[in-house]
């Protein structure tokens, strides 16, 4: 009997000790989050400042808001005048940004998925070479290519068009996209493809009805990344687009800070927030797909 009592005694003992051990257990987390919290504080504070200053008439000492106003947000319904010139409508810029990002996403996913499949599955001469060199293409900073790209766009008559910049951006993005997608295709076993062939599909049909659905998480991830990179693209658009009709949000923002003497910080923060909004919404809606990708690089069976 003695032996049977003992474990119970141990349990009660551990129960009484519990509060102490709980705090001890959590201590590492407190330290970790403390350190992380302090180091990220400037960034968090900056976002808060952005929000406050967009709704304030004036900032006392630069960071204490004085009196609430919607003045800074009037760019939403009027064309704002800034530094002596009238800025184009924010909605033109927004529409252009959307157009640019969405077309970029579609082009990139379409080409990237096909290229990724070819790299993953099809044996052709120069495949290894191609795989090695595509990454180098991605490593080129856009800045290094600006002059060459300018000549090409000018020659093709695509200077100052969204479409021209779109082509350039797509070309720069494709290698990385194809690589990411290739990884997902690599995870699809040959057996499944073969099963599809035997069950009566052509190779193309197997690809469309079986393989593509299996790499859905990968396609989602690539779409999200390319949309975000299109939305935040600045350099190419700034360099190759001059007319106000084709302006995008990033360039619009740039106009506000182009002259350091005339920066309206209230307006700037309001437009910045407006620029960020779609990204935040996008993240909220696509978070699940993104998490799935980081968790396992695609769902296996």
């Amino acid at each position: 009997m003695e032996q049977w009592v003992r474990p119970e005694a141990a349990v009660t003992a551990s129960l009484t000790r519990r509060p102490v051990s709980k705090w001890k257990k959590r201590l590492p987390f407190f330290i970790a989050y403390g350190v992380l919290g302090i180091t990220t504080m400037p960034i968090i504070l900056m976002y808060i400042w952005l929000l406050l200053s967009s709704f304030a008439k004036q900032m006392k000492y630069g960071f204490i808001p004085v009196s609430f106003t919607l003045e800074n947000w009037k760019f939403l319904w009027t064309n704002v005048e800034h530094g002596g010139t009238t800025l184009p409508s924010i909605w033109t810029a927004t529409w252009n940004s959307f157009l640019f990002s969405i077309t970029l996403t579609m082009l990139e996913v379409l080409i990237g998925v096909m290229a990724g499949y070819a790299l993953s599955r099809i044996e052709f001469p120069g495949r290894q070479m191609l795989m090695k060199t595509t990454l180098i293409l991605h490593a080129f900073p856009s800045v290094a290519l600006l002059i060459a790209v300018y000549y090409i766009l000018n020659f093709l008559g695509l200077f100052d068009t969204l479409f021209g910049v779109l082509l350039v951006k797509t070309a720069l993005q494709i290698p990385m996209t194809a690589w990411i997608v290739k990884g997902f295709f690599d995870n699809v076993p040959w057996d499944v493809e073969w099963a599809g062939l035997i069950d009566g599909c052509s190779r193309l049909k197997v690809w469309l009805t079986i393989v593509l659905p299996m790499i859905k998480p990968g396609i989602a991830a690539v779409s999200i990344f390319s949309f975000l990179s299109g939305w935040s693209e600045f350099l190419l658009l700034y360099m190759f687009i001059v007319s106000d009709d084709n302006i995008t949000l990033a360039s619009y923002l740039q106009k506000l800070i182009s002259d350091p003497n005339l920066v309206d910080y209230g307006l700037l923060s309001a437009v910045s927030l407006f620029y960020m909004l779609p990204v935040i919404l996008f993240f909220i809606f696509t978070q699940k797909s993104l998490m799935e990708v980081s968790a396992g690089g695609g769902k296996g069976v």
């Binding site: 076993p189 499944v192 073969w194 062939l197 069950d199 052509s202």
Partner: peptide, 30 residues
Amino acid sequence: WEPKDRNIGMVFQSYALYPHMTVLENIAFP
């Protein structure tokens, strides 16, 4: 002849089921 024209059924070692389809859809696929 292409595999689809040979009228064969095959079971793979890994089963090679289509993960995005239900059991019924898998069976009805051919």
